[in-house]
Amino acid sequence: MAITKKDVEHAAKLARLALSQEETELYASQMAKILTHVEKLGTLDTKAVEPTSYTISPKTIFRKDEAKPSLPQDEILSNAPEKAKGCFKVTRIIE
């Protein structure tokens, strides 16, 4: 399975990762090797097979839709890299 540098750069952009040149090249070769290994799945006929995402729970567990107290605002913000006026602060996104 060939993976180009361009493929890796595209995936890195989707994944929001600023990869270095060396990382891009390393991942291209390693991902190619791993994806070659997974190619064996192609030998199985799965046309009539339903995919499995969750194995055991036959149904979603619902709970009552009740209003309950949530964590206090200052505790929620306690780990914020930057905060202002009770909000998470990020750099300006609208010019």
């Binding site: 493929d7 994944a15 990762l17 990869l19 990382e23 991942y27 991902m31 791993i34």
Partner: peptide, 20 residues
């Protein structure tokens, strides 16, 4: 930049593989 600095090589590799 945050994610590139914060994640180690194996985590990045898996994020990349999953995203791809």
């Amino acid at each position: 930049k945050t994610r590139d600095e914060g994640f180690g090589p194996e985590v990045k590799r898996r994020i990349m593989l999953g995203t791809y």
